[in-house]
Design a protein around this nucleic acid. Sequence first.
DNA 1: TTGTATGCGTTATCAG
DNA 2: CTGATAACGCATACAA
Lengths: 358, 358
Amino acid sequence: MTSSREQTELVASPSESTEAFAAKSVSLRTIAEEADVHVSTVSRVLRANPNQPRTAVAERVWATAERLGYRRNLVASGLRTSSTQSIGVVSPRLYDIMVSTLCYSIEATARYAGYQALISSPPDDMGEQMRSVEFLLSRRVDGLILTSLHRDESVFADRLRSLSIPVIAANRHLGDQVPSVTCDDRDGGRQATGHLIGLGHTRIGILAGQRHASTGFNRMLGYRDAMAAAGIEVDEALVMHTDFEVEGGILGAHALLSLAQPPTAIFAVNDMAAVGVLGAANQRGLQVPRDLSVIGYNDIPVAAHLPTPLTTIHSPLRQMGEHAVSHLLSTIRGKDPTSDILPVSLVVRSSTAPPNVP
Amino acid sequence: MTSSREQTELVASPSESTEAFAAKSVSLRTIAEEADVHVSTVSRVLRANPNQPRTAVAERVWATAERLGYRRNLVASGLRTSSTQSIGVVSPRLYDIMVSTLCYSIEATARYAGYQALISSPPDDMGEQMRSVEFLLSRRVDGLILTSLHRDESVFADRLRSLSIPVIAANRHLGDQVPSVTCDDRDGGRQATGHLIGLGHTRIGILAGQRHASTGFNRMLGYRDAMAAAGIEVDEALVMHTDFEVEGGILGAHALLSLAQPPTAIFAVNDMAAVGVLGAANQRGLQVPRDLSVIGYNDIPVAAHLPTPLTTIHSPLRQMGEHAVSHLLSTIRGKDPTSDILPVSLVVRSSTAPPNVP
DNA sequence: TTGTATGCGTTATCAG
DNA sequence: CTGATAACGCATACAA
């Protein structure tokens, strides 16, 4: 004890600046020696409610901690409490505006709640995603959010369910096996198609995205709902599966518009594909919306600013991220996992109009 | 020892499935007891080169580890080795396509090297960014990447330099005080302006972005370089500072085009602003590129697919992320920090043409 | 209120 | 090549 006191005085000598201290890692023990109390006291004091009245000792501890620029070591803390205050996010294609907006919202919400988001953006296949999950489990995250599950991957779903930590899917639906927060894609599909039908269209093409994505799939179900409700039989030649990129939209649009009986309106289940449709229409000398109505999905930032501002369905991505995190944190705190479907809304701009009947 | 053996037999009973084990956290000790060796042996065996020839004991250890579904606890490991194999990334505006592309590349590169990226996307001011840095330091990241430093924030730069871990700036330049990986924005500005001059333009407006961003600032310097090299005096009325969004482009373009002597070409220092310029031109009944040439910057994905495909400067964001990570990891491994400037390239599309001289 | 003792899971050092 | 032991920094049950 006496020798540690001597060291204390030494370290506290005025020649040392606060800056210098920050460099050497200061731990609870450093403070304990400085303030001449036990480590456990320091620990207790520093993790007490800061608004509480403080004893003289507590005051001294706080002062020393601040003087030395103490930062709690969350690694050690996490080991001790077996809670890292972190969540894993597995989110392929982070370069995609939809994905990044969702991740932004997840990260911000988590950070606000004192959690660190560990984002991983591996290639979009189940094997790589599983590797990311393993990696995150090694880091002992308290929970997991997955944003790119594929339909019918029941094996993966089983493995996810068997994990010892809570898992939630955002923007994707995986049966009832994994809790999820999604937008109401089916209703969005209904609204989009209903809007076109309301304008008088009956021959409506759909670019339904990739088959494995639950989002595109559900939007297509909504399309079928709306058609059925209006008593229009769906011509399967008008249902086309492409990818979610501009290129897919171009190819799909050309295919649809080359049909013997081409559609008078096209519903692209995401905005990038809709941009492709716009381009294809342009290439064919068709004017939008006079000769062809186009409706997209998601309401990405440029949608409003295209030369023909795009009619589309707005998905509340920010809200989805917030809900996913708050559901996950609830589950981590012991509540039962719940799922949640967010409403979407139609945004009418200039790319849709009644059909041009000559 | 004997009692632990008994427990061993018990746990290994065939009624227990591998799945069940995965739930209970299995540690080195679990394996040690199962395989009847010492913990330190397990540790040594499991972290040895897997290609090396194994002893009988090692074989047994590996088998048990795999049977029990062991996952190394990186939290404990990090505490012991004081190296978390993680890097912090402070990157405001993750919802921006440029930022997310950069972060994607950073994360992928880090993951490939066995590191976890801890991405934080706080509000874009120095105070919030500093809070994120503190948070990440608490998690004992091995290094830091910052992507949104502002010019002339020397106080912040000082604090960053005084940290005990390596720091690097990506896409931003902060004097020579902090090492950085950037694109050659000044040269990009030169190339863009030079392209317009080469087409015959002399009255060239520039939307230079926000003053605090080094990117926009340097692109403007390049603009001045090119003008000077061509012997054209810069009319300061043609230099306009706006934000980096579509709205800023619209406002800026209207301001420039309302001048007594309007420009025949506009250089927007980012693509979103260029989209705004396109919109404003449209509103004024000007045809691009016949009545007005427009050049953007960054080459975002939609740029190629706009109805008037945008001429722009391509910034190698992916490469920037890779370089930033590899520089940072080098520094973490003890090498001297270095900076690095990546070349950019002009992509000519359809939004630029010779001026329309009536 | 404060001090003591112990352990979280891992790895480094040393002895056998 | 393997075993024993200690320590990383923190939090907590328990004793004073």
